[in-house]
Nucleic acid binder design. Sequence first.
DNA 1: TATAAAAGTTAGACAAACCTAACAAAATAA
DNA 2: TTATTTTGTTAGGTTTGTCTAACTTTTATA
Lengths: 236, 236
Amino acid sequence: MLSFTEENYLKALLQITMENEEKSAAGTNELAAALNVKPATATDMLKKLKDKELVDYQKYGKITLTITGRKHAIEIVRKHRLWETFLHKKLGFTWDEVHEVAEQLEHIQSQKLVDKLDELLDFPEFDPHGDIIPNAKGEIKLPFRKTLADVEAGKSCKMVAVKDNSVNFLQYVVKVGLEINHDIKVISKESYDSLLSIEVSGLVYSVSEKFAQNILVVCRFCEVGKACSKTKCEIK
Amino acid sequence: MLSFTEENYLKALLQITMENEEKSAAGTNELAAALNVKPATATDMLKKLKDKELVDYQKYGKITLTITGRKHAIEIVRKHRLWETFLHKKLGFTWDEVHEVAEQLEHIQSQKLVDKLDELLDFPEFDPHGDIIPNAKGEIKLPFRKTLADVEAGKSCKMVAVKDNSVNFLQYVVKVGLEINHDIKVISKESYDSLLSIEVSGLVYSVSEKFAQNILVVCRFCEVGKACSKTKCEIK
DNA sequence: TATAAAAGTTAGACAAACCTAACAAAATAA
DNA sequence: TTATTTTGTTAGGTTTGTCTAACTTTTATA
């Protein structure tokens, strides 16, 4: 049985090592920062997790999850995202409210609860932020996605997810009129500061590059989740 | 903000002091037993809860909850019973499965979650064991109830709740064919060992006095939750 | 009422998860 | 390739919630 804290370390490690394709290992400082603890604390915990064979780690070396550790981490992420979906779909929580409560709910131990929740929600694939919900077998099929910052001027795309789940960012996204499944046209890009001019539902907004890097998009004409090969695809 | 442990102590104190009308204070050993810790541990925690003004207590004296402590405890019980109801009504958990999971869920901090859950369940009054769910104001209207052991031979009653929420007892109740809202007729009572012969849905069973003391009943003809004054009332 | 039993407390220890301060190793830059 | 910065570790300390063992107070019993 894992403690809440141990679960949080595993989840953080999974998130760090899944951030992008290239990176597959984490560092102590990085991990500590993600969990809001001091590096010394993370070192202590890493020793413990190593003893339990949940992480591969040695002094001054990079940190990776073992198969078992990864399985645990995925189960936690699965629960987190199912709860987020429940809060949003069944209890009317807005997408900026779900994360905080799901952080608590993800630690509830009951396989039956997870299974039944999944069923109640009709086996959802995505949570309210557009993140993939790992299935009951712990499989995650990573969908093909670009960030809004990657879209060329003049091209259009469809928003499918956000990278940043902070309340601040999510509320800002709403304010800009953006929403999952909305179409976005990139009008222009400033070469100096990469400021983007975008059109959403007929209205034009300016957004920073930082903002655009946290909006995940796909081609409007392509199937969600697959690399598109159609000639008309606007997202390469 | 209270820790899980502190919440459990408050809840246990509420449960002990509400067990029956006469008793309104708890002892250290009793509390420790309820929480599965040693008396020494309970003493430590009591000092802490006293400092936080959640309990009235002094060395070697009886323990009672303060107004604030009671309010917290009732809120925890409310959450526990709402979650039990949710698990039973929305996720198909049986009544012997709900308690364990609700023990975890009762500690989730989110006022909105509690309110929305209450709404989703259509503001239930009773949980799957027939226990009263305190309302949003923290009010508990204690209904008039007797135990099956109090019912005279020849009289009938209606089961409305159980006192013991253990898996063992609950499964046994089901085995005997009993269920909330079922009518029970007491055929006879052995004067030697108080063994009861009862009739449920046309079938006759023998149950011990201990068992009968954990089945809560009302008069079949009286309104649930009120002391009955009708002449035909069979439960006095 | 004296004494035994029960109930409750204190002292000292331990594990988990955190910290700070000092140090060591690795990576980067001069 | 040496020096500096970044990264990571160790040592020692704190808090929370638990324990055991020894002790004290209260209650019950003879």
